[in-house]
Nucleic acid binder design. Sequence first.
DNA 1: GAAGTAAACTACACTCATTAGTTTACTTTT
DNA 2: AAAAGTAAACTAATGAGTGTAGTTTACTTC
Lengths: 220, 220
Amino acid sequence: MYYFSLFFFYGVIVSKNTKLTRSEIKRQDIIDAACQAFQEFGVQATSMDKIAELAQVSKRTVYNHFATKQALVVYLLNEIRTRTLVDVDIDTTYDPLRSVESKLLTLITAEINLYSCGHYIDLTRMAFGHFLYHPEELKRELDKVMTQETAFQRYLRSACEHKQLNIPDIKFATDQLQNLIKGSCFWPQFLKIEAPLTDEQKHHIATESAAMFLARYNNK
Amino acid sequence: MYYFSLFFFYGVIVSKNTKLTRSEIKRQDIIDAACQAFQEFGVQATSMDKIAELAQVSKRTVYNHFATKQALVVYLLNEIRTRTLVDVDIDTTYDPLRSVESKLLTLITAEINLYSCGHYIDLTRMAFGHFLYHPEELKRELDKVMTQETAFQRYLRSACEHKQLNIPDIKFATDQLQNLIKGSCFWPQFLKIEAPLTDEQKHHIATESAAMFLARYNNK
DNA sequence: GAAGTAAACTACACTCATTAGTTTACTTTT
DNA sequence: AAAAGTAAACTAATGAGTGTAGTTTACTTC
């Protein structure tokens, strides 16, 4: 049976393009089951027995692949980190042929789409559920992510250097822009209190966020 | 012994201004202990034995006051709701003698101070920890809060009516403003990934949020 | 293609710790 | 004396992790 997870590893597995051993399949089943259960019920409320049952695998097999529950959690969390680290892969240098507004819209839209990805939300939910009462750990993990400059920051700096924008504090302005977006596109989804956004809603939020940002920082 | 909780009931108890029975004291000890433990470790990770120990009360006494653990959680959560429902108590009609900017700053500052209150953060943390995997319940609770108009909304509407601001969608604009503030003042604190804000930081965020908002919506 | 082998899987019974909730026999407060 | 508190032992369930004896799979080797 040819099998490749649509979720983890799919780049790797597909390019490997080979049969998976039964062991690999089982392992993947365990990971998928754990991922799903952790997201749905939380780490605490998910027993190893439950995971084994969901994965249709004996409990012993779960323990053959992951020595402890903690090991399973840590494994999944690392997957999250590598997954969410993919920064928006867009050219971030100022282009005189293109309006700042248009470029900004592209960047914002990319960010919104990241937040709209079901996996992204589900995985951060799982991570936060785990870390909510382990703030030191959370901080350590986040620091790894925080230190890198975002696509926003790079572009804003570039546009400032070309005198298109006038931003005294680029880091602060980036946060403002991100807050405008996250407040509407990330947090409500994260708390599952709002239905997924339609394309029109996304577009509206993107244009309005850009409008407000430019109203403040456009160099006129 | 005269006793009044600095946390729950203090308005009530102080005005009652009378001796508390031992039973009432014990009950309060239990509530305080549960509140603290739930916030620190989460509901799941806090056992009734632990609460009894923290409250320096026998386990049976805990059960005399609260029939089940669930009952204790529900009780505390209701306290949260009534506590956080206190809206900013500021006059929200447009005053021609005062600049919109100044008034907005006052409102924003009040909002920031609410978020900066340790209790507010701790209690929402507890609530979210509990509700993160009970979205339907969360939604139901939030709906009770969401339906009421915020102080922001009332003032913005009033200022629009006096042609001081030009806001096509007041609800949306309110969200934008709130997102600007929450992104810096609430969420980082909520996740305990940022130290509490200094007064300077608060002031900076307040002025910058107002500046961006007015750059977009000021009627000039 | 048949037989052999090591690794991985299975079912299941087990230990040990924790936790929600109860019961009992006795003491303190009001 | 009634109401409320106490310590301590108890039940019943759950859940992490282990040990074991037997089975399946994949991959040789003949």
